[in-house]
Design a protein around this nucleic acid. Structure first.
Length: 573
DNA sequence: GCCGTTTTCGGCCCGACTGTTTTCAGTCG
């Protein structure tokens, strides 16, 4: 059983308990536990099986929840969840997805009016029966009708790179206004999550109305959804919704902290404030009525006796311990990257030639690249067989001799076949400068077979790195079922690198696994997997993921010079 | 249901906005 499934079960218990009007702190305990489990790199099923490990050592997991995890892993179900499901039909929890309907209102609809699904809710709303219910009204009924059809679809999150195209023009537009002294995107966008739900923008200005007017006039804004004295929510033409919050300059830092989140990080900050007799909110840090910090983020953290914490680490996943002990990492940046070791050319499914890719990479400041076209198994992409690959490598040598200022390595993205053998013969792979082994096919194989393939590749004498390990496509395809602990142990033993693939749809390894890889002593390589010259600019997305994993430049192999990089390829020394 | 620098009970983060109310509950982030 995967960690996600266990976390989802706890989230579902939280939802169902909340609908029953359970104690809110009890509900929160289930949600906290779900978060802990979801952020865990180790397989929970393995931890359950490990007699030396106590589950209640995990944060937010006590005796009771530890028992429920064990029950779920060993029996496949939790009796409490089954009982809750029997009392609350599945359609009731689905109603929670409609904006404006929370647990209290949904409980009223279900218990007092027998509405138990989105379909029956829609019918009642169309018949005008909702407006008459106590606590409801005409507006609520209209909101339900306006949102119910899209609520039937799963909550959509937007890839970071796509969200950037919505929020950056808005930021530029507001920044150009005289009335605005500072403006910045906050929320999960600023934390560089791989996907964002909605956008948060925070501005410092004395005239909030003028800022909100400016936003309303921005060409991307389709509709104003709500507007108060300091806060406004709009829907953009791209479909994303955006919250704008306007604060005075003296509160800007506190507001930025508050709206950057994460929620879990903020809760720890405010609790920390409480322990020091301080109140922390979006206006500042207060001792009684008196504000003692708020102008900058650094002030706010300092008032809580902490150094400034980079947004990418603000998840309550250990950053407070690092901050307190003065051991926060100096996170890797795009400027640290010297090489790009995964890209395609017209030889397989890329759109640019070797020379075009090399010159574009050079223009971005790269000192070395590896050309890694597909191997023959990927026939759709015109993958290379031994003969074509050797010819391709000759061409690479020729171009390498012609272009100054960047070194081009002869590489290959070689498939690990379903039977755990490599797609190209050993004598060919031996001639490469650099071999990335990847799974493209058979991603749905059971964990045992997936691991057999990955471990075989790691042990192979000429494999230097494992590329996009899981093969996932965010929001579209679940990755292979991988035992990451076993993979990282094997990779460490054989001196194999693991990739963070910077393609915004992949970002594979993810932040949790990349952090775990670092703890296993592995070096990570951040590659674009570019299929065009423009694709070479995707390094930044991989950097985001690496920063969220807490990686420093020294943890990333391709921050090194080519000579130093080659020394990491122990199999080729 | 969890947890401990006010510790094994009694707390558990904080405020804006909306809609439905006549002073506030519910929802959201």
């Amino acid at each position: 059983m995967q960690n996600d499934e266990i976390a989802n079960a706890f989230d579902e218990i939280g939802d169902l308990l909340e609908l029953q009007g359970a104690n809110t702190f009890r509900v929160r305990a289930y949600r906290n536990a779900a978060r802990t489990l979801r952020d865990l790199s180790d397989s929970i099923a393995d931890l359950v099986a490990d007699p030396k490990f106590d589950l209640d050592e995990l944060p937010g997991i006590g005796k009771d929840l530890a028992g429920k995890i064990r029950t779920l892993v060993t029996t496949g179900s939790i009796p409490q969840l089954d009982e809750l499901r029997a009392v609350v039909p599945p359609g009731v929890a689905e109603m929670l997805r409609i904006p404006g309907l929370g647990p209290k209102k949904v409980a009223t609809l279900f218990k007092e009016h027998g509405i138990d699904s989105l379909a029956s809710l829609k019918k009642a709303a169309l018949a005008g029966e909702i407006a008459g219910i106590k606590g409801f009204g005409k507006k609520t009924e209209q909101t339900i009708l306006a949102n119910i059809d899209q609520a039937a679809e799963a909550a959509q999150r937007t890839l970071f790179a796509v969200a950037a195209e919505s929020v950056e023009p808005v930021i530029r537009h507001l920044r150009a206004r005289d009335v605005v002294s500072h403006v910045e995107a906050a929320g999960s966008y600023r934390r560089r999550l791989e996907t964002v739900g909605d956008l948060d923008v925070i501005a410092a200005a004395t005239d909030a109305e003028a800022v909100m007017d400016a936003l309303a006039a921005q060409s991307l804004v389709e509709a104003v959804l709500s507007r108060g004295p300091t806060k406004m929510r709009v829907r953009l033409r791209t479909g994303l919704e955006l919250d704008l919050r306007v604060l005075e300059e003296a509160s800007y830092g506190a507001g930025l902290v508050y709206f950057t989140g994460s929620k879990a990080h903020n809760i720890v900050l405010r609790r920390r404030g409480q322990q020091r007799g301080l109140k922390v909110n979006e206006y500042g840090v207060f001792r009684g009525e008196k504000s003692i910090a708020g102008r900058s983020e650094e002030d706010v953290y300092a008032a809580l006796e902490l150094p400034w914490i980079p947004p990418e680490l603000r998840e309550d996943r250990g950053e407070f311990d690092l901050a307190e002990s003065g051991t926060l990492p100096t996170l890797v940046t795009t400027d640290d990257i010297r090489g790009d070791l995964h890209m395609h050319t017209t030889a397989s499914d890329g759109t640019a030639t070797i020379a075009e890719m090399a010159l574009a990479a050079k223009a971005l400041g790269r000192k070395y690249i590896a050309i890694t076209d597909h191997s023959k198994r990927v026939s759709m992409a015109r993958g290379l067989d031994s003969k074509r690959l050797r010819e391709h490598w000759k061409e690479i040598d020729r171009v390498n001799g012609e272009i100054q200022g960047i070194e081009i390595l002869k590489g290959i993205e070689c498939d690990i076949l379903e039977d755990a053998t490599m797609d190209l013969p050993d004598d060919v792979l031996a001639e490469a400068d650099w071999v990335i082994a990847v799974l493209h096919y058979g991603l749905k194989q059971p964990r045992e077979r997936i691991m057999k393939r990955l471990v075989a590749a790691v042990r192979h004498p000429y494999v230097d790195a494992i590329g996009h390990p899981s093969g996932r496509l965010i929001g579209r395809r679940k990755g292979a079922d991988i035992d990451y602990t076993a993979l990282f142990k094997a990779a460490a033993e054989h001196g194999v690198l693991v990739e963070i693939n910077a393609n915004p749809q992949r970002l594979d390894l993810d932040d949790v696994q990349a952090h775990a890889a670092k703890k296993h002593g592995l070096k990570i390589v951040i590659d674009t997997d570019a299929h065009s010259t423009e694709g070479l600019e995707m390094t930044q997305y991989g950097i985001h993921q690496a920063r969220r994993a807490g990686l420093e430049a020294k943890d990333v192999a391709n921050t090194r010079t080519l000579a130093q990089f080659r020394k990491l390829l122990v199999k080729r020394l």
